[in-house]
Amino acid sequence: MVEFIRVSYGTAVAMGLKHGKMLARPTTAYLMTYWPGHCRNNCAFCVQARESGANLKKLSRVTWPAFELEDVLKALPNGGFSRLCLQTIDYPDMVEDVLELLDRFAPLNLPVSVSITPVGRDVLKEFKERGVDYIGVGLDAASERIYKSVKDSLYSWDEMWAFTRDVLDVFGLGKAFVHLIVGLGETDREMVETMARLYGMKAEVSLFAFTPVKGTRLENAKPPSLKRYRRIQLARYLLEKNLASPRDFKFDNGGNLTGFGIPKEELLGLVSPEAFATHGCPGCNRPYYNERPKKEPYNFPVRPKKEYVTGITDAIL
């Protein structure tokens, strides 16, 4: 029986379980399965990794305090959320716990997203029957080369792609949000090619910026520059909206993105504020997940003004 659940700090504040200031209110309730130990996988960037020495109350730079499940269920309506997003770590009873949590969430009548490691189609169908409409897939790495170096995982590169296909088959096209982390050592070309492959199979892409956290294997690595991240965001947007194909993008000999294949003035007119905002399931704004509050966010939790977007786009072209 599930007794505890982790709640992201901002979500807990919005619910009244914690007191604190929010620069941006979460529009989705971000929750995580509770497990007293480490994940069975050993991703080099992850706080929850099998060999991580980091604080298990964290995921990326966000603190996730644990609360009794009953208290969370009572407080959730106070947050005014439009969706529940359940993050999972991999442990022996994970699937059973997720199914129980979905049953407990049902009276709230909110759509539910679940981010999870590969499970069978039968499990996916059980999730769907319990109100889940989107699945988050933690591919994370933009190439098999990077995957093998940072994803010490129970699941291979090919198995992650097969799982993505299973999600699309069970839930429908566009219902798999595949997570990709910018800054793990990939080239821009690798990132663009993987995003294009995902959009080609009718999956969606959620971009994250690598965040070094003390106690992880990559604690001394550097996050991506904001300029590079903005260029990858722009490429993702153009691919998603079918405004450009992979053949249109230009790269130098090092695989760095140097052009988008669209004249600058035309591109300035095409880019919407959503290009630089959090791209996730409906109702997801994921405020300050991988950035510090006093700095310009990698992913804006609310759409920036059009004139600001024009300035961003002009600066990165």
Rank of each mutant, 00 (worst) to 15 (best):
I5N: 09
G10Y: 09
R25L: 02
P26W: 03
P26A: 03
P26C: 08
T27P: 07
T27I: 01
A29I: 02
R40F: 13
F45T: 08
C46D: 06
S52Q: 02
L59Q: 12
R61S: 14
F67P: 01
E68D: 11
N78R: 04
G79R: 03
C85D: 15
L86S: 08
I89C: 14
M94T: 10
M94D: 10
M94Q: 15
V95L: 09
D97H: 07
D97Q: 07
P107M: 02
N109T: 08
N109E: 15
L110D: 14
V112Q: 01
V119W: 02
R121K: 14
K125C: 07
K125N: 03
E129W: 00
V132M: 09
V137L: 07
A141D: 05
A142N: 06
Y147D: 07
S149R: 01
V150G: 15
W157L: 04
D158G: 12
W161V: 07
A162I: 01
L168S: 11
D169R: 11
K175T: 15
V182C: 09
R189C: 13
M191P: 01
M191H: 03
M191Q: 10
E193T: 00
A196Y: 02
M201K: 05
P212V: 05
S225W: 08
I232D: 06
L234D: 13
A235D: 01
R236W: 00
Y237F: 14
L243N: 09
R247S: 15
R247I: 06
F249N: 11
F251M: 02
D252P: 14
L257P: 00
T258Q: 04
T258A: 07
G259F: 11
P263C: 07
K264G: 07
E266A: 14
V271Y: 05
S272Q: 13
E274H: 04
A277P: 06
H279P: 04
G280C: 01
G280A: 02
N285I: 05
Y289S: 08
P293K: 04
K295E: 15
K295A: 12
Y298Q: 06
V302I: 13
K305R: 15
E307S: 13
Y308W: 13
V309E: 12
T310K: 10
G311I: 00
I312T: 07
T313L: 13
A315G: 15
I316S: 11
